[in-house]
């Protein structure tokens, strides 16, 4: 399944000012692959992820999942937002938030739904906190709730929009490792948007870089580092460092070019 998720000639213009966020974006994602989407700020990577999820539509080009065009949110794709304080509803407990993922879908009884939710809370390390309210939890724990709510729906694809960028360094590291474990245990396909090169190289099998606005795919490179990855060892491998340098230089070129173009 080379072209499980195929993005082809995608362009997004904003109706308000007519400028393109990105254009001619083409790449494919294999089933079970972990792809990081990076780029300088303003390159449209978040907009691209929204397009892929079906929450918004591209101006032209197509996104196909197993050959069928995506034109709205799909049950098999779940989105994890950067703003967990909003995405997790503050008036619901942790358990109620996760329940919201399945309460209107599954044919399960309420008790079975609860059991399933608790299993998924265990999966993200929140088994002891089902009756807490989000404001009683740290940011990292809140984002875990969002991940549990996404996973309880048994998605095939996880679309993550800078999910850890609002967290402090220690929590980010912890959640990166948790995500890698979930990915390998559950056989997910993940598209992970980040502006952090190190994060992208650490988690992903492949890094797709968008250039500065209007964004285009400037780099599409495999990350040939073995899993499970280790925070210290992986980050000091020669391959990691070479890729990091290459991507860094490319990103700087993009930023400079867009600054020169803007003047």
């Amino acid at each position: 399944m080379k072209n499980y998720l195929a993005i082809d000639g995608l362009e997004k213009r904003f109706a308000s000012h007519g400028r393109a966020a990105f254009k001619d974006v083409t790449f494919a994602v294999r089933q079970g692959e972990f792809v990081a989407l990076i780029g300088p700020s303003g390159c449209g990577k978040s907009t691209l992820l929204h397009n892929i999820s079906g929450l918004s539509q591209p101006t032209s080009g197509t996104i196909k999942l197993s050959g069928s065009v995506i034109d709205g949110p799909r049950a098999e794709m779940m989105f994890v937002f950067q703003q967990y304080t909003k995405s997790i509803f503050p008036w619901k407990t942790v358990l109620q938030n996760v329940l919201l993922g399945i309460k209107y879908q599954s044919g399960l009884s309420h008790a079975e739904q609860e059991k399933l939710c608790l299993e998924h809370l265990n999966l993200v390390g929140l088994g002891k906190y089902p009756h807490y309210y989000p404001y009683q939890l740290s940011g990292g724990m809140q984002q875990r709730v969002a991940i549990a709510r996404a996973l309880v729906r048994r998605p095939k694809i996880l679309l993550m929009d800078e999910p850890f960028s609002a967290l402090d360094a220690m929590m980010r590291v912890e959640l990166q490792d948790l995500l890698l474990k979930l990915w390998s245990d559950l056989g997910l396909t993940i598209i992970f948007v980040t502006h952090d090169l190190d994060e992208a190289l650490y988690v992903a099998q492949r890094v797709v870089m968008l250039g500065a606005s209007p964004g285009k795919v400037t780099v599409n490179v495999d990350v040939p580092l073995p899993y499970p990855r280790q925070q210290i060892e992986t980050r000091s491998e020669p391959v990691y460092l070479q890729l990091r340098e290459r991507l860094y230089n490319n990103m700087m070129e993009q930023v400079m070019a867009s600054r020169a173009g803007a003047v």
């Binding site: 999820s53 929450l55 989105f79 703003q83 909003k86 509803f89 209107y104």
Partner: peptide
């Protein structure tokens, strides 16, 4: 917030469910 409506959409809530839950 927009993010909350997007959340409701990705969770597949109907209009009535969105009113009730969000």
């Amino acid at each position: 917030d927009r993010v909350q409506f997007d959340t409701a959409r990705t969770l597949g809530l109907t209009t009535f469910q969105t009113f009730r839950e969000l």
